[in-house]
Simulated scan of single mutants.
Amino acid sequence: MSPPLSPVRTRNAAATRTAILEAARRRFAHEGYDQTGLRDIASDAGVDAALISRYFGGKEELFEEVLTCGPNIAEFLDGDREGFGDRVATMMAMEPMREEKFQLFLIMLRSASSPKAAAAIRRHSRESFYEPLEAWLGGEDAAVRARVLSCIMMGATMNRMIHEDFLLDDTQRQNLCEALSRTLNHYASGPV
């Protein structure tokens, strides 16, 4: 009797690339740039570490790709200007907290102290958040208004990550959402 044939492992470049990105996203979110190793990512993805170099080049390039694949400001800019505050405040204060929504923020927060990662974070923030937001806002003070909106959004996000319910009951949380919406709409619609 002959031994059973081992299953043939099919090669699927897109699936391998996706598995590496997902594993990297989770590792960078939980450990930050400096504490994350390529071998750990490869192990999590179920691939050989050499494939990371093949698909991405190295850790810096993989990190940049993870940043690029994350959510960006476009989802909030899709709609009328008057609804901007409502869209953002509802997501930050009322929608169920899902890790993937906040993963990019965690990645940036936990990696910002790394000089290599900080450069990529600055570039990504400028290209994927500030520049599109400034263009959407328009006007002379668009850069300042974009930074004010960013500060409010990051502060609310950080608070939500620490205290999922903001340490408020449902009515208070709804009031917070409405106050955030008004504040965001103020800076989205007019001069500083």
Rank of each mutant, 00 (worst) to 15 (best):
R54D: 01
P4M: 13
V144G: 04
M154N: 04
Y130D: 04
N72D: 15
Q174S: 11
E99W: 06
F166V: 03
S128W: 11
G79S: 09
L176K: 05
I73A: 10
L109K: 13
I121H: 05
K101A: 13
T157H: 03
M153E: 07
A156Q: 08
G83K: 00
P3I: 10
I121K: 02
R87Q: 05
N159K: 05
R17L: 02
L184N: 09
S113T: 14
H163Q: 06
D141Y: 14
V66T: 05
N185W: 02
L184C: 11
T68N: 10
F105V: 05
R27W: 10
L106R: 13
P132M: 01
F166A: 01
E65I: 01
G46V: 07
G70H: 07
H163L: 07
L51V: 00
I162V: 15
G57I: 10
R173N: 08
R147N: 12
R39C: 00
I152R: 04
V8E: 15
N72F: 02
R123Q: 14
T18F: 04
A135T: 12
G139F: 13
S113Y: 10
R147H: 12
T183Q: 12
R87W: 07
C69S: 12
A19T: 08
E131D: 15
A118R: 08
A120P: 05
T18V: 03
A143F: 03
R39L: 07
A93M: 06
